[in-house]
Design a protein around this nucleic acid. Sequence first.
DNA 1: CTAAAAGGGGACTAATATGGTACTGTTTAA
DNA 2: TTAAACAGTACCATATTAGTCCCCTTTTAG
Lengths: 163, 163
Amino acid sequence: MIRINRLTDYAVIVLAEMLRAESLRTVPQLAADTSLPAPTVAKLLKVLAHGRLVTSSRGATGGYSLGRPADAISVADIIEAVEGPIAITMCVEDNDSCCGIESLCSLHGHWTRINQAIRRALTEISLTELARLPAFDMDCWPGPRTKEKVEARKAPCKTKPAP
Amino acid sequence: MIRINRLTDYAVIVLAEMLRAESLRTVPQLAADTSLPAPTVAKLLKVLAHGRLVTSSRGATGGYSLGRPADAISVADIIEAVEGPIAITMCVEDNDSCCGIESLCSLHGHWTRINQAIRRALTEISLTELARLPAFDMDCWPGPRTKEKVEARKAPCKTKPAP
DNA sequence: CTAAAAGGGGACTAATATGGTACTGTTTAA
DNA sequence: TTAAACAGTACCATATTAGTCCCCTTTTAG
């Protein structure tokens, strides 16, 4: 599967929550409203602030708010902020230090076309559209993956016979 | 980044090679012609055969050949054969055993739209188009990642100061 | 009929990447 | 000046990946 990081998903959740009540929100607030662990939300917002998707106010009454109108935030923006440039990186990954000549590597050429197609698709979907969907169903959303939960879930569900 | 498995990239390489000289090819042949490790090529072809992208002939004069015209093989087909269904799996991953009710989970809803957009983009690119590009530049292509190579590459390139 | 060549199908293991956490500043309002 | 909130970095456990190896079945050549 093509997979997007869990963190990127979290980013969408947090941003959607920020859109729902547009005001200055603190990390503890957002963590509570999204049921995500506060440290993770904090880490995420730092990255999003770097990418200018949210703006931060420091100090005792500080917090975060959306950096621009939700219409101007695309899924591509979110993904790029959290995970870096959208690319199905293959041999390219090692090249930044070694061979680095992208234009010569036809292998890379294969995928740039595909990348462009994907990127276009992602650019056309805005945060507004995502947030338009109903609120998360917390009964379904399993929440963050912590040690205890993973352990707890192993027993009742996965009925693998022990080898 | 959105990332595709390295194996999927290998699959494209192998399939392109098979297209270039359409005939019955053995695993050792293909491995040699693509500079990929033979066990990996073998593993890959088994999976591709499962997905009906290649057909296999057994026995002493056996080998593999393309299962259908290259025009009828899309990037989406290749990815699905190697990595399973195209999906940006999020909370859904755990659900097959536990909560499993996709239609209720709006989180899932967020991404199905995106999945569809990506899938469409991938379906429109065929193996023929990929293979039309020039042959791989072997000087650039770093080859498979083996212990020795990884070790060897550490020294001259990454100039991290040892901590 | 036998042996060798080739695919089929797992299982195992090392390396990597990810996600989660903690700790230590720095800024700013009360 | 103190507390609350963001900033930055570094760390560890775990999950996933890719690569390899093993034994089995099928099929053809001799």
